Measured scan of single mutants.
Amino acid sequence: LPLEERVTHFRDMLLERGVSAFSTWEKELHKIVFDPRYLLLNSEERKQIFEQFVKTR
Rank of each mutant, 00 (worst) to 15 (best):
V19G: 03
L14P: 10
H9M: 15
E26F: 04
R17I: 01
F50N: 15
L14G: 02
R11F: 10
E5Q: 09
K31W: 00
F10W: 06
K55A: 10
A21G: 09
E45T: 06
R17F: 08
K31Y: 01
R17K: 15
S43D: 06
E26V: 01
I32P: 08
D35A: 00
Q48N: 15
I49E: 09
F34I: 14
W25V: 03
V54Y: 06
Q52N: 06
N42Q: 13
S20W: 08
F22R: 11
R11Q: 10
E44G: 11
E26D: 11
V54K: 08
K47P: 02
S43F: 09
Y38Q: 03
R11D: 01
T56S: 13
L15C: 07
L41I: 08
R17Q: 10
R6V: 03
I49M: 05
H9R: 11
R6D: 02
L29E: 14
V19I: 06
P2M: 11
E5I: 12
K31C: 07
H30G: 06
E45K: 09
L14Q: 05
G18K: 15
L15P: 06
L41Q: 07
I49Y: 14
K27D: 14
E28G: 03
F53W: 12
M13K: 05
I49W: 02
N42L: 06
F53H: 07
K31H: 04
Y38F: 12
R46K: 07
K31N: 10
L3H: 15
Y38W: 00
V19P: 14
P36G: 06
P2I: 14
M13A: 01
E51D: 12
D12F: 04
Y38T: 03
R11Y: 10
L3V: 15
Q52V: 06
L15M: 06
L3K: 15
E44R: 11
Q52F: 00
E51C: 00
S20K: 05
E4Q: 06
A21N: 12
E4P: 03
T24G: 04
I49Q: 15
P36M: 00
F53T: 00
V7D: 11
R17T: 07
V19D: 04
E16G: 01
V33Q: 15
F22I: 02
A21W: 05
F53K: 02
F50M: 05
T24V: 05
D12Y: 12
K55T: 14
L15I: 09
E28M: 00
R46V: 07
K47M: 11
L1M: 03
E16L: 00
R37I: 08
K47E: 05
I49P: 01
E16S: 02
G18Q: 07
T24C: 14
V19A: 03
P36N: 10
L40S: 04
E5C: 09
V33P: 12
S43E: 15
E26M: 12
S23V: 09
E16T: 01
I49A: 06
H30L: 06
E44C: 11
T56V: 07
V7F: 13
L29H: 15
L41M: 09
R37G: 03
F50C: 00
K55Q: 11
E16C: 04
T24L: 05
Q52I: 05
K55L: 12
L14K: 01
P2F: 13
E51G: 04
T24A: 05
K27Y: 07
R37S: 03
L15E: 15
I32E: 04
E16Y: 01
D12R: 10
R37M: 01
K31L: 02
L29I: 15
V19M: 00
E16K: 14
F10M: 02
Q48A: 12
D35I: 04
V7Y: 12
E16A: 07
H30T: 06
W25Y: 14
L40D: 00
R37W: 02
L14R: 02
D12Q: 11
F50L: 08
F34Q: 14
E28I: 00
E28Q: 04
E44I: 14
F34D: 15
D12S: 10
V7Q: 13
V19E: 01
T56C: 11
I49V: 14
E4M: 04
E45H: 11
I49K: 03
T56I: 12
H9I: 15
M13D: 01
A21R: 09
I32H: 09
L1I: 15
V7T: 09
E5M: 10
K55D: 06
G18C: 03
R46E: 10
R6F: 10
R6G: 01
E5K: 06
H30K: 08
R57G: 15
E51N: 11
H9Q: 14
F22Q: 14
R17E: 07
G18F: 05
S23G: 09
F53N: 12
L14V: 00
H9K: 14
E45M: 12
K31R: 04
T8I: 08
S43L: 12
Q48E: 13
I32M: 07
F34V: 12
D35P: 03
E51M: 08
R6E: 00
P36I: 00
T56Y: 06
P36W: 13
Q52K: 10
I32C: 07
L3Y: 14
M13W: 12
R11G: 05
V19C: 04
D12P: 01
K27S: 03
L15W: 08
T56G: 09
N42W: 02
R46S: 04
E28C: 06
S20M: 05
G18T: 14
E28K: 05
V54T: 12
K27R: 10
L41N: 02
K47W: 05
S23R: 01
T8H: 08
L29F: 11
I32V: 14
K47H: 12
L15R: 14
D12E: 15
H9D: 13
G18S: 09
S43V: 09
E5T: 05
D12N: 10
L3F: 13
K55S: 12
H30Q: 07
F10R: 03
A21E: 11
F22K: 11
W25C: 08
S43N: 08
P2V: 13
P2Y: 09
F22C: 14
T8M: 08
H30Y: 09
T8K: 07
H9L: 15
L14H: 00
K47I: 14
H9G: 05
R11N: 09
V7H: 09
V33D: 11
Q48M: 13
F53I: 04
H9C: 11
E26P: 10
K47F: 12
K31V: 03
T8W: 04
R11I: 15
Q52H: 08
V19T: 03
D35H: 09
M13P: 10
E28A: 01
H9T: 07
L29W: 00
L40Q: 00
F10D: 01
L40G: 09
S43M: 12
H9E: 10
V7S: 09
E26Q: 09
L29S: 07
N42T: 09
E51Q: 10
R46G: 08
D12I: 11
N42R: 11
F22N: 15
K47Y: 04
E16W: 04
R17P: 10
V19Q: 04
E28R: 05
F34R: 14
L29K: 14
E45R: 07
K47T: 02
Q52T: 09
K27F: 14
S43W: 08
F22W: 14
S20L: 05
M13S: 02
F34N: 11
T8L: 07
P2S: 15
L40R: 00
V54C: 09
K55V: 09
I49D: 15
E16N: 04
